[in-house]
Design a protein around this nucleic acid. Sequence first.
DNA 1: TCTGGGGTCCTAGGACCC
DNA 2: TCTGGGGTCCTAGGACCC
Length: 402
Amino acid sequence: MERQILHIDVNNAFLSWTAIEMLKKGSKIDIREIPAIIGGDESKRSGIVLAKSMKAKECGVKTAETIYQAKIKCPNLRVFPSDYKIYKKYSDNLYNLLLQYTDKIERFSIDECFLDMTEYLMKDTLYNKAKEISKRVKEELGFTVNIGVANNKLLAKMASDFTKPDRIHTLYKEEIPKKMWPLPVSELFMLGRKTVPKLYNLQIKTIGDLAHTNKTLLEKKFGKHGIMMWEYSNGIDNSEVNYKEEKPKGIGNSITLPQNITNIKKLEEILLALTEQVTYRLRRYKMKATTVNIQLRTNDFKDKTHQGKLPTETSTTKEIYQKAKELLSQMYKEGTPIRLIGLRVDGLIDEKESQLSFFQNQENEKQEKLDKVMDELKNKYGYNSITRAGKMNVGNILKLKD
DNA sequence: TCTGGGGTCCTAGGACCC
DNA sequence: TCTGGGGTCCTAGGACCC
């Protein structure tokens, strides 16, 4: 039986949600109606565009470009900071509304969902359901969405991207040649800035060109990725709507430093703050890590990563920080200007599945208890109330100017 | 480029074992 | 041993997504 899939995509999510929040607080202007963006902080060297209003888009402002460039295109551009907490709240509101239609919802990102409506609907009523959802979101939550209607996830996602905002598009199999094939190949999901120029060199310019290219040739040139792009261009995608809550496979934090850092002692202080944050999240998931990974970005935007296995799986700040420091000292040459430092833990396993609990030594147990006490204080009084890194917690690093 | 931060997945090459 | 080939595990780097 053919599946019935919806893809819901919030229009200019960060900007719309910020606009609603501002209006609620008594703002006289709706930033959706003026040239505006949600952006990082240029003074902290993170000045990029995260979301833009339609008016800003009309000026040629693009997501992920620098605020500096956006302002050149659009001199009266207003810039507003992002607030993840607000976005999470609106994302949850949307999710809860959608739950009234099906519980087979995959939260693909903070502002995108896939819905598997197969058991509930026949094709001819799916479009009407999309209309109802769109109307209710607008009336009850105050923002607009694009909805893609199709028989698999890839086509639903492509459809929701067609024309914006506040639109519903279908993309059924018979509509592929007319609606999808004329589009530039760069519009296809999973084709990014590195692959598109290579396809152009092969005279593949539209999604239709790609669909009519020999699959074996693409496999030879691009491996697995080649097969995938051929299938996508032909509208083939058998992946399921993954509606079960998934545990993360890795957890990381990284930070672009307000100024370059050139000595290992300073880097270690920041590494401790990052470790506290990462392991706090790890413990909240009730998971342990087997691998630690350090990322350094130099002045010239070259990234280096270094990873290593932990002696045993763990979630303690101390053990992970120890490993992190060890990796850092192996990869860092004193004096090299560092722009960004990041820490990730990988190879995560459930606490429950950890084989360690029976054989744990006393030192381990002591560390786990210490972390637990700290976590409880953070839960109660806020994350920044207590950190071993002292003033060097990640929130404050951004404020530090020395 | 005045160029974020959070992820996932894939690939190539080296080490090691049989 | 001036040495083959396959499997598995690990690491570094890269591509892509929002």
